[in-house]
Design a protein around this nucleic acid. Sequence first.
DNA 1: GAAACTGCTTGCGATTTGCAATCAGTTGGC
DNA 2: GCCAACTGATTGCAAATCGCAAGCAGTTTC
Lengths: 172, 172
Amino acid sequence: MKETGRSGCPINLTLEILGDRWSLIVLRDMMFGNRRHYRELLAKSDEGIASNILADRLKRLLESGLISRRDDASHKQKGIYSLTEMGIALVPVFAAMADWGRRFLPVTPEMSIRAEILAEGGPALWSKFMDELRFLHLDAPRPAQSVLDQLTAAYREAVERKHATEAEPEAV
Amino acid sequence: MKETGRSGCPINLTLEILGDRWSLIVLRDMMFGNRRHYRELLAKSDEGIASNILADRLKRLLESGLISRRDDASHKQKGIYSLTEMGIALVPVFAAMADWGRRFLPVTPEMSIRAEILAEGGPALWSKFMDELRFLHLDAPRPAQSVLDQLTAAYREAVERKHATEAEPEAV
DNA sequence: GAAACTGCTTGCGATTTGCAATCAGTTGGC
DNA sequence: GCCAACTGATTGCAAATCGCAAGCAGTTTC
């Protein structure tokens, strides 16, 4: 654990770990996009994170205890990054931030559909989603239904709807 | 409004505005400490923000629409910063971040008492607090009871409890 | 008229960021 | 065995940002 920084305020301590432009982007992609490898996080990033920044953030998130890393049996160099309970506990923070963003910022419809569903579902849905993340990242028992599938399906639908009206090819 | 940055994702757009180490600290002090003047924000900051950083953040927050500024009738140079509805709407984000921080980070008891009360009170309490902020910052009608007083009283109590055991003078 | 206070700017060295190129080791196809 | 593709990074470098200290012009107080 790092020495105390600026103050013992929960908001301040949270900002000292997550208060930058990329940490939460990486966690978001792991959480909602189920990206678990370095290359997945690097190449499929909508925002185009640079490789050195990604490496640095993964290192910091590991040190902070938000994610863990284990070797991939299929490839000696490959690592699989997983959310820890501490990382999974950020679901309500993401839900609150995403809801705020979709209400006040110029979001695109297909990118905000998941935020909308999470906002409408409320804490009950967040809790189900967190159970699912524990299954995917912590080897907990598989939950009955998949919130991630629900979110991903809604996102895909929104993307298709967009393409139907714009008639403009784009990678999914 | 600024041009679109990296992506239309609500999380990303939120981070482009608030994703740094100081913006939310300034908003926190305005919201929970009711600090409305530049010097108040500068001098009473627990984390010791630098004057140029504060000036820059106030400018950015003004441009983003999170705060507003009006002249103080009592002093020609003085400005009063207020939260806008967009800023007040961050209450659930602060509550979620503070709750996460107090559960997983080495917070001090007196700094986390308010986070605890907000977590226990839930959305109903947040809503009352937001009404009070609308009264303080947007000239809305005065609400029946003051959540800010409740939070501040609990914080003062926690500080006094700390001093009683540590017997160590400190500014409040 | 001096001192204190107002919001804010400036200078400057240290750190961080963002981008491109590059790296060594691993795997799979032939 | 051999080479191309892929793995998780590292390195170099210019630009931006940060953090600290000092300073500034205008205002108020006494």
